[in-house]
């Protein structure tokens, strides 16, 4: 077991309106601690010293709920690929390191307090079509519609998204294309998602734009930051679906002559 001495610079902001600032805290950490357990240790020290603990979102601490998320030395969820902040362990750092910790920054993710941000824009994108309109009780037998294994696997690759927002935080434009594309692709690759395929992509993209997320300019930083390794191929697929759907919509509304 090895102990390391670290210096943290942490963003502290008392409320959405308050002016934030960085504060510096020393901490001793064990290599087997998770990053959030290291923050717990810092917080215990702050409480003992009479300073309010650092607020950060977290819940499952096993990399699946998507609650946690912070910029660690400028990287969403920190230095380790395919790893959420809660699954990042201190063995990824070394004695004497300085660590800069900030909230995810995006105008569509306003800061609530310290490292806690408001990501409700993601829920509103789902509300704009990220579902299959099937009420409870009327479903056919689960094996009535065959789903090729490869398609199920690819749908699952996209469906793994945990909605943490790292893609937005990592993007120079604060674009939510990877998040939106993951949901669009998950349903577009399954037979159950076909009837609403076009409606879905139009609705979700429109909502995404209205939330104030930036556009995609193919930096691919989102893919690199994604703890679930969602591929930017999904963005290409969404763009294709979006174009098709837009054309079809114009045809159907008679907005202009467009050939197939």
């Amino acid at each position: 077991m090895s102990t390391m001495r670290l210096t943290l610079k942490v963003w502290r902001q008392a409320s959405p309106e308050a002016k934030g600032e960085f504060r510096t805290y020393p901490v001793e950490a064990d290599e087997h601690m998770s990053f959030l357990e290291m923050l717990d240790v810092v917080n215990e020290g702050l409480i003992a010293a009479g300073e309010e603990p650092i607020a950060f979102d977290h819940d499952c601490r096993e990399g699946i709920c998507g609650s946690c998320g912070m910029m660690i030395n400028g990287k969403a969820h920190g230095p380790r690929a395919a790893t959420t902040a809660c699954q990042l362990h201190m063995r990824s750092f070394k004695d004497g390191d300085h660590i800069l910790i900030e909230p995810f920054r995006a105008s569509a993710f306003p800061v609530i307090r310290d490292l806690v941000v408001d990501r409700s824009s993601f829920d509103r994108i789902i509300q704009a079509g990220g579902y299959v309109s099937v009420g409870t009780g009327a479903a056919p037998d689960g094996n009535a519609i065959l789903v090729p294994k490869e398609m199920a696997e690819r749908a699952m690759d996209a469906a793994q998204c945990i909605g943490c927002g790292a893609c937005v935080a990592a993007c120079p434009n604060a674009s939510a294309m990877l998040f939106t594309a993951a949901k669009v692709s998950h349903l577009a690759m399954l037979p159950q998602g076909q009837p609403e395929r076009h409606r879905r992509v139009l609705g979700m993209v429109e909502q995404m734009d209205s939330e104030g997320f930036g556009g995609c300019t193919n930096f691919a930083e989102c893919e690199a930051a994604c703890p679930k390794q969602i591929s930017i191929e999904n963005i290409a697929r969404m763009n294709r679906d979006f174009l098709k759907a837009s054309l079809r919509e114009r045809e159907e509304t008679g907005a202009g002559a467009v050939s197939n």
Partner: peptide, 14 residues
């Protein structure tokens, strides 16, 4: 059945 209809990507055979 319900979950399949919602688009839950359960594991499949070939």
């Amino acid at each position: 059945d319900q979950c399949v209809a919602q688009g839950v990507p359960f594991a499949r055979e070939y």
